[in-house]
């Protein structure tokens, strides 16, 4: 099993757009959805699923596959969209998001092909990823493990407990990605419980840190693909992102956190996403 070939940023851009279109579509359903924080990770997921992760939709349980965990489980609509676009299940099923009796719950569930473990209660993903990484080291094989965290999620103490343990266990198969969109439910992280200096924090916890534009589809793949420069170090990729990215009227606004889009708003969103030059800058 190998990572997808480097087909260039055009393919990633097309995948990211498709993921965003599905995100807004799901957020126009009966329950609405976590719009802003899903749009902020769309490019990261496109880079992961179309360039970085060694996964095979035809063999989702392959023993050597790379593992991705969405620790910020409220970004489920983005994950479902990425998995469907990548071919883990039909894109048609996304129309059933949050429908009674269905499997597409508002936080990721294992019943959905490609979802490794359920997440949603914040602060769990890094320990789970560390477990996969420890197992992979003991088993041998090429597996790498990626955990995508929200920046607000880092206010959960368990993240730092696991970060400390990962460095102690020299878990260099583990990469944490921080969706640094700067906003949590009620406002800016820096006004609620500040995280800065965030890169220094990860470094102090024994991680190798890379800072990248989380919407730059040329910069994301190399930042995610490269192992640590020093053996034994886990890698933290701090991805600067914009909450609500792709919808100019929602981007960077705390109100984008959760939305139920009307039919009219959905049409407006599709128009915004499809506008040439909108994705990415």
């Amino acid at each position: 099993m190998s990572a997808p070939a480097d087909t260039g940023t055009a393919v990633l851009r097309a995948a990211a757009l498709r993921i965003r279109r599905h995100i807004v579509g799901m957020c126009a359903g009966a329950t609405g959805g976590h719009l802003g924080g899903s749009l902020s990770i769309a490019d990261i997921l496109a880079a992961l699923y179309f360039r970085v992760l060694r996964v095979d939709p035809a063999a989702p349980d392959d023993e050597d596959r790379d593992v991705f965990l969405l620790s910020k489980g409220h970004g489920a609509v983005a994950l479902y969209a990425a998995l469907a676009v990548r071919g883990f299940f039909p894109e048609d099923e996304l129309a059933g998001f949050a429908a009674p009796g269905g499997r597409l719950m508002a936080h990721p569930v294992r019943a959905v092909p490609g979802v490794e473990l359920p997440t949603g209660s914040l602060g769990h993903g890094l320990a789970l990823g560390l477990g996969f990484a420890c197992a992979a080291r003991l088993s041998g094989g090429p597996r790498r493990v990626y955990v995508l965290l929200g920046d607000g999620e880092l206010q959960e103490g368990a993240c730092w407990e696991s970060a400390m343990a990962a460095a102690a266990l020299r878990a260099d198969r583990l990469t944490a990605i921080v969706d640094r969109n700067g906003l949590q439910l009620t406002g800016p992280t820096e006004r609620i419980v500040p995280l800065e200096p965030l890169a220094d924090k990860w470094r102090a916890f024994g991680w190798e840190v890379r800072e990248v534009d989380g919407h730059d589809l040329e910069a994301l793949p190399p930042a995610l693909l490269a192992g640590p420069s020093v053996p034994g170090r886990p890698v933290a990729v701090i991805a600067s992102t914009v909450k609500g990215r792709g919808l100019p009227y929602a981007a960077g606004r705390v109100e984008s956190h959760y939305a139920r889009l009307s039919e009219r708003a959905l049409a407006r969103a599709y128009r915004a996403l499809d506008r040439p030059g909108q994705e990415p800058t």
């Binding site: 023993e63 593992v67 490794e116 473990l117 602060g123 769990h124 890094l126 320990a127 789970l128 990823g129 560390l130 477990g131 996969f132 990484a133 420890c134 197992a135 992979a136 003991l138 088993s139 368990a158 407990e161 696991s162 400390m164 343990a165 102690a168 266990l169």
Partner: peptide, 26 residues
């Protein structure tokens, strides 16, 4: 010896790491 892991005084991480390992077939 490599299969003995001391996670330190970190019980949430202890259980989470165990779950990740179990999901990987251990």
């Amino acid at each position: 010896a490599a299969r003995y892991l001391n996670l330190g005084i970190a019980e949430h991480t202890l259980i989470g790491v165990a779950a990740g390992m179990a999901a990987a077939g251990w």
